[in-house]
């Protein structure tokens, strides 16, 4: 009766843990993906010579938060621009061919090692002589990072609460088990059972509750996550560029051992310390 309640609470605890884990992991994954594409773009003062631009480039590449810096010449910039805006009517672009309208648009695309250091880099870039303009695409990454942090805090709070309830219920289960078997325990001790021998069945019960309580939600999560990923892939494939889900196998490589360890750990400590309290020699 009570072990059922323990298993259920434990399942709920680990299920929520799993959900939060998936959300946090996926957001982190998305942020990482964004970091690869997010760039700070710097444009130079008019009339700056190529040598001067190169010198700035060397300085940028030397920054620790910069993972890569790519130089885009004015011509390349124009080609890119044409491709995007004159896709339908390339002949319109012909007219500009001899007089590149983006002559001053040579720039560096700077890729960062992580999004958080972007502000530092921009501050530094602003102090560099010869830079005319800095474009940053900070917003999205910032929002993602903040949201991730929020989800993290909430999940830690909820999980801690459920952890306490799980431990409490397991402790209750063991207490009742000890009360029911008081006679048996007394006889065991008189016969010469070691404390370990008396405790073992209760610890095993606790671990079993933990194991079952972890397996059920993990199985359920595996099923749901697989469904979700394929559903999102089918219905929202336009978004798949942005919403990059971690594959289920990679997700569970961490979630499975963590969830099982959590369940077994709660079961073990919950029962172990309850027995210690009740079965003093």
């Amino acid at each position: 009766m009570f072990s059922l309640a323990s298993v259920a609470t434990m399942s709920a605890c680990i299920f929520l843990f799993g959900i939060f884990f998936c959300v946090v992991e996926n957001f982190q994954h998305m942020v990482r993906e964004m970091e690869k594409s997010v760039a700070v773009t710097v444009f130079f003062d008019e009339g700056l010579s190529q040598e001067q631009i190169d010198a700035i480039g060397v300085q940028i590449k030397a920054r620790p938060e910069v993972s890569d810096a790519v130089f885009v010449t004015a011509d390349e910039a124009w080609d890119e621009y044409k491709e995007i805006y004159f896709e339908e009517a390339p002949e319109l672009a012909e007219g500009f061919e001899d007089d590149n309208p983006l002559a001053n648009e040579a720039h560096y695309e700077i890729y960062l090692t992580d999004v958080e250091s972007q502000d530092d880099l921009v501050t530094w870039l602003e102090s560099v002589e010869g830079i005319r303009r800095i474009n940053e695409s900070a917003q999205v990454a910032d929002i993602l990072t903040n949201f991730n942090l929020l989800v993290g805090y909430i999940s830690v709070a909820v999980i801690l609460l459920l952890l306490c309830v799980s431990v409490f219920l397991i402790s209750n289960t063991v207490t009742i088990g000890i009360a029911v078997r008081r006679e048996e325990i007394a006889i065991m001790k008189l016969i010469g059972a070691t404390n370990g021998f008396v405790k073992a069945p209760f610890v095993v019960e606790g671990i079993m509750i933990g194991l079952i309580g972890a397996s059920i939600p993990l199985g359920l999560l595996y099923f749901l996550y697989t469904k979700l990923v394929s559903f999102m892939g089918d219905k929202f494939n336009i978004l798949t560029g942005l919403l990059q889900f971690l594959p289920v196998s990679e997700m569970f490589r961490i979630l499975l051992p963590t969830g099982l360890a959590l369940g077994v750990g709660i079961g073990f400590f919950g029962s172990f310390f309850t027995i210690r309290k009740h079965l003093r020699v």
Binding site: K189, L190, I191, N195, V281
Partner: peptide
């Protein structure tokens, strides 16, 4: 010592 009690009791029948 408390941990020697079980071993001691094995020599007794009750």
């Amino acid at each position: 010592k408390p941990r020697d009690i079980p071993k001691y009791r094995r020599k007794l029948g009750v």
